[in-house]
Design a protein around this nucleic acid. Structure first.
Length: 284
DNA sequence: ATCGGTACCTGCACGC
DNA sequence: TGCGTGCAGGTACCGA
């Protein structure tokens, strides 16, 4: 989430935790916002406030970044990519609670400060799952990502599914299989496609797979549209009504009635993650 | 090779 | 009231 006033947003019903997990739509929204202000700017100085944030030696990264110009901002999966004028790429992963702020003051959870020739970018991350990595080509973690969730064709999606044998929920979370989905959108996509999270890919009909492919695409597009609209003036983008409502048909709605059939939403653990589904709409 | 489980981390909800 | 405990999850890593 790109936010201007950290404490303000943080106080907002814990939105950062309940629904602000940075998945593909959030990172895409941030990338679009940053691509309007970062390209062309030069990095004056980088300061890491946590040893954990940088993937590698913080002093070396800061030194290599000094005086570099940012040429382009992109996204790959959940990675934010800042391309530099010397060909290096700064890959930022927001982890679970990471956020970026433009032109604010450091707060209690600020882990990195990027002073630019005009402006300042802050990296906040309370739980410190986020990472900042600098490399002269796509980092290994980025290179081994699967196809983009929004770009894969239905045919390719089906082909890759048939190569795997795990549970559908675990598969959707696997970034090597498909890049961009997190726990929220995995649950929501399976609900839309009426697929039980424990289903194995070999049990799915071609029609069901096509429905899942479409569900993922529609879900992510809707989420980006919602995020994008509220972030057009990202500077005070700390209120985005409508976004989280749409996202939560099953996610963290345990015990509440299914919007489709009224059955109570159930919660199980799959691949170590809380997994929410409708026992009636999503039969095994 | 592939899969499932665990560690990392910290704010918060909950119970005694 | 205050403290301890468990939970949340993206990714790396480990062992089977």
């Amino acid at each position: 989430m790109l936010i201007e006033s950290y404490p303000n947003t943080f106080a907002r019903v814990g939105a950062l935790y309940a629904g602000g997990l940075p998945e593909l739509p959030e990172v895409e929204t941030i990338a679009r916002a940053l691509s309007r202000c970062l390209p062309g700017r030069r990095i004056r100085r980088v300061h890491f406030l946590s040893e954990r944030a940088p993937a590698g030696c913080p002093h070396e990264i800061a030194s290599r970044l000094r005086a570099r110009r940012i040429t382009r901002v992109g996204r790959r999966g959940k990675f934010l990519l800042l391309e530099l004028d010397d060909g290096d790429v700064l890959a930022i992963h927001l982890g679970m609670t990471g956020s970026l702020r433009w032109r604010g003051a450091p707060g209690p959870h600020t882990r990195a400060v990027f002073d630019l020739d005009d402006g300042r970018l802050l990296f906040d991350d309370p739980r410190q799952f986020g990472r900042i990595e600098l490399s002269n080509n796509p980092p290994a973690r980025v290179a081994r990502l699967g196809p983009e969730a929004l770009e894969i064709s239905a045919h390719e999606f089906e082909r890759r599914l048939h190569q795997r044998r795990g549970r559908m929920k675990a598969l959707l979370l696997d970034q090597c299989f498909l890049a961009g989905l997190g726990n929220i959108y995995a649950d929501e996509a399976l609900f839309r496609a009426r697929i039980h999270p424990l289903t194995r890919p070999s049990k799915l009909s071609a029609d069901r797979i096509r429905r899942l492919h479409r569900a993922i695409r529609d879900l992510l597009r809707e989420a980006i549209a919602a995020g994008g609209s509220s972030v057009s003036d990202y500077v005070d983008a700390d209120g985005r009504p409508g976004f989280f409502q749409f996202a939560h048909r099953v996610y963290r709605r345990t015990g509440l009635p299914c919007a489709n059939c009224g059955a109570r939403i159930r919660r199980i653990v799959v691949a170590g993650r809380g997994t929410h589904y409708c026992p009636r709409c999503q039969r095994p």
